[in-house]
Amino acid sequence: MNSGFDDFLTLEVNNLDVDVLTGIYSEETHLPQPLRISIRARLKIADHYDPDTPLSRSKNYMDLKHAATAALPEGQHFTLIEAVADHIIETIFLQDDKVTHVEVKIVKLALSEKGEEIGITMGRGRR
């Protein structure tokens, strides 16, 4: 009987602070801007996870962290934070064919005056 709820597994890495060359300000100063990046990756779920289920049936969340840090090309200026999000999403899809959907939230910390979060959330399904 279908209850209307699909099983899902989402890996999350939240609130990574990363300095990225982005926006007009970075273009003028050649200094990176601080971004707070959160990633959610939805995976094809296994039928069941036993205590000894190997990591290969899921995904290492450090891969998500890598996509938002070391995998961003050093010295590359991204005019839009949308392009940063796109790069992270593409990296995660390339890492693992079990990933079916990726959502990236980017907050521009330099714009915050009183702790508000200003930025974007981008989600893409595997094409």
Rank of each mutant, 00 (worst) to 15 (best):
L21P: 01
A85V: 02
N15P: 11
P51G: 12
K44S: 08
G115P: 04
L55E: 09
Q76M: 13
K65L: 11
T91R: 01
Q33S: 15
G125V: 06
T53G: 09
I24W: 14
S58E: 04
S56N: 06
L43Q: 13
S3L: 15
K65V: 05
L55T: 00
K105Q: 15
V84H: 01
N60M: 02
H77Q: 11
I39C: 03
M62E: 12
T69K: 06
H48T: 13
D17F: 12
K44P: 01
A46D: 11
L21I: 09
E28M: 13
T69A: 08
R124F: 00
L9K: 05
D86A: 04
N2W: 11
I92W: 00
N15D: 15
Y61T: 07
H30D: 14
L72F: 05
T79P: 03
I24K: 15
V13E: 02
T69Y: 03
G4Y: 11
R36I: 09
V20L: 07
H87S: 05
F5C: 12
H48Q: 07
Q33M: 08
M122G: 06
N60V: 06
E113F: 13
D96H: 12
L109F: 07
S56H: 10
P73Q: 11
R36A: 05
G115C: 03
E117F: 04
N60S: 00
L80V: 05
S3E: 13
A83V: 07
L43P: 10
R57Y: 11
I24Q: 13
D6V: 13
E27P: 05
G123N: 01
T69V: 05
A83E: 03
P51Y: 06
L11S: 03
L94A: 15
D50Y: 14
P32F: 12
V20E: 00
F78W: 02
G125L: 10
I45K: 06
Q33K: 11
H77F: 12
S26K: 12
V102H: 00
